[in-house]
Amino acid sequence: INASIYDEIQQEMKRAKVSQALFAKVAATKSQGWLCELLRWKEDPSPENRTLWENLSMIRRFLSLPQPERDAIY
Results as ranks from 00 to 15, higher is better:
3 A>K: 09
3 A>M: 14
3 A>S: 15
4 S>E: 13
4 S>R: 08
4 S>N: 12
4 S>V: 06
5 I>A: 02
5 I>M: 07
7 D>K: 11
7 D>M: 11
7 D>Q: 10
7 D>I: 09
7 D>S: 13
8 E>A: 10
8 E>D: 15
8 E>L: 06
8 E>R: 06
9 I>K: 04
9 I>S: 01
10 Q>A: 14
10 Q>W: 03
11 Q>H: 12
11 Q>R: 10
11 Q>M: 15
12 E>S: 00
12 E>Q: 02
13 M>H: 01
13 M>W: 01
14 K>T: 06
14 K>S: 15
14 K>P: 02
15 R>H: 08
15 R>V: 00
15 R>M: 02
15 R>N: 04
15 R>L: 06
16 A>S: 11
16 A>C: 05
16 A>V: 05
16 A>H: 01
16 A>G: 11
16 A>M: 04
17 K>M: 09
17 K>A: 11
17 K>P: 02
19 S>R: 06
19 S>C: 02
19 S>T: 10
19 S>Q: 03
19 S>G: 12
20 Q>C: 04
20 Q>V: 09
21 A>I: 04
21 A>E: 14
21 A>P: 07
21 A>L: 05
21 A>Y: 07
22 L>M: 11
23 F>R: 00
23 F>A: 00
23 F>N: 03
23 F>T: 06
24 A>R: 01
24 A>S: 10
24 A>P: 03
25 K>P: 04
25 K>T: 09
26 V>D: 04
26 V>C: 10
27 A>G: 03
27 A>P: 02
27 A>M: 02
27 A>F: 12
28 A>K: 02
28 A>R: 00
28 A>L: 07
29 T>M: 12
29 T>K: 15
29 T>E: 15
29 T>Y: 10
31 S>R: 09
32 Q>Y: 06
32 Q>M: 07
32 Q>N: 05
32 Q>V: 07
32 Q>K: 10
33 G>P: 12
33 G>T: 14
33 G>Y: 08
34 W>T: 05
34 W>A: 06
34 W>R: 02
34 W>V: 07
34 W>K: 03
34 W>C: 01
35 L>S: 03
35 L>Y: 06
35 L>E: 00
36 C>R: 13
36 C>L: 12
36 C>P: 05
37 E>R: 08
37 E>L: 06
37 E>A: 08
37 E>G: 05
38 L>P: 00
38 L>A: 08
39 L>N: 00
39 L>F: 02
39 L>A: 01
40 R>I: 06
40 R>H: 12
40 R>A: 12
40 R>Y: 10
41 W>N: 07
41 W>I: 13
41 W>P: 01
41 W>V: 14
41 W>Y: 14
42 K>G: 06
42 K>D: 06
42 K>R: 14
42 K>V: 03
44 D>G: 09
46 S>I: 14
46 S>V: 10
46 S>K: 12
46 S>E: 07
46 S>R: 15
46 S>C: 14
46 S>A: 10
47 P>M: 14
47 P>A: 07
47 P>R: 11
47 P>Q: 12
48 E>N: 14
48 E>S: 10
48 E>L: 11
48 E>M: 13
48 E>R: 07
49 N>L: 05
49 N>W: 01
49 N>K: 03
50 R>G: 10
50 R>E: 13
50 R>V: 15
50 R>H: 15
51 T>M: 12
51 T>N: 07
51 T>E: 12
51 T>Q: 10
51 T>R: 09
51 T>S: 11
51 T>L: 09
51 T>K: 11
51 T>W: 09
52 L>W: 07
52 L>C: 04
53 W>V: 09
53 W>S: 04
53 W>A: 06
54 E>Q: 12
54 E>I: 11
55 N>K: 09
55 N>T: 11
55 N>Q: 14
55 N>W: 05
56 L>T: 00
56 L>I: 10
56 L>Q: 07
57 S>E: 14
59 I>L: 08
59 I>C: 11
60 R>V: 06
60 R>P: 09
60 R>C: 07
60 R>N: 13
61 R>K: 15
61 R>A: 14
61 R>M: 04
62 F>L: 03
62 F>A: 01
62 F>V: 02
62 F>Q: 03
63 L>P: 02
63 L>T: 00
63 L>I: 01
63 L>K: 00
63 L>F: 01
63 L>W: 00
64 S>A: 12
64 S>Y: 04
65 L>F: 07
65 L>K: 15
66 P>L: 01
66 P>N: 04
67 Q>R: 10
67 Q>L: 13
67 Q>N: 04
67 Q>P: 02
67 Q>K: 12
68 P>E: 15
68 P>G: 14
68 P>L: 06
69 E>G: 05
70 R>L: 02
70 R>W: 02
71 D>Y: 03
71 D>R: 01
72 A>L: 11
72 A>N: 15
72 A>W: 06
72 A>D: 14
72 A>C: 03
72 A>K: 10
72 A>R: 15
73 I>G: 13
73 I>K: 14
73 I>W: 15
73 I>F: 12
